[in-house]
Computed example of a mutant assay.
Amino acid sequence: MMKEFGKLLVIMGLVLAAVGVLMWTGWGRGWLGRLPGDIHYTRGNFSFHFPIVTCLLLSLVLTLLMWLFRR
């Protein structure tokens, strides 16, 4: 059981590092957080941004990855 948990931690660390490198290089800067359906409201000096579709997309991708690694 501990071997499987260790393997999962290593894989999650590698995925997190890969995502960090991609974000550091600027990949996704133009569209990530600006997908159709993301909420952005501005009035006067108040601005509210909630990337709901981006959150759903990231959740779907992470769920699929976890499902694949558990098989």
Results as ranks from 00 to 15, higher is better:
1 M>E: 13
3 K>D: 07
4 E>M: 14
5 F>Q: 10
5 F>S: 05
5 F>E: 09
6 G>Q: 14
11 I>C: 07
15 V>L: 13
16 L>I: 00
16 L>P: 00
17 A>W: 06
19 V>K: 00
22 L>E: 04
23 M>D: 04
23 M>E: 03
24 W>M: 10
24 W>P: 00
24 W>G: 01
25 T>Q: 07
27 W>T: 12
28 G>I: 04
28 G>H: 02
29 R>P: 01
29 R>M: 11
30 G>A: 13
30 G>Q: 09
31 W>V: 13
33 G>Q: 04
34 R>I: 00
35 L>M: 04
35 L>S: 00
36 P>M: 08
37 G>N: 09
40 H>E: 12
42 T>D: 08
43 R>T: 04
43 R>V: 12
43 R>Q: 11
44 G>E: 10
45 N>M: 15
45 N>F: 15
46 F>L: 15
46 F>H: 13
47 S>N: 13
47 S>F: 11
47 S>T: 09
49 H>F: 06
51 P>H: 00
51 P>L: 06
53 V>C: 01
54 T>Q: 10
55 C>W: 15
56 L>G: 14
57 L>N: 00
58 L>A: 14
58 L>S: 12
58 L>W: 13
58 L>K: 03
59 S>A: 11
59 S>D: 02
59 S>Y: 06
60 L>P: 01
63 T>V: 07
63 T>C: 05
64 L>Y: 07
65 L>S: 06
65 L>F: 14
68 L>T: 08
68 L>E: 09
69 F>K: 11
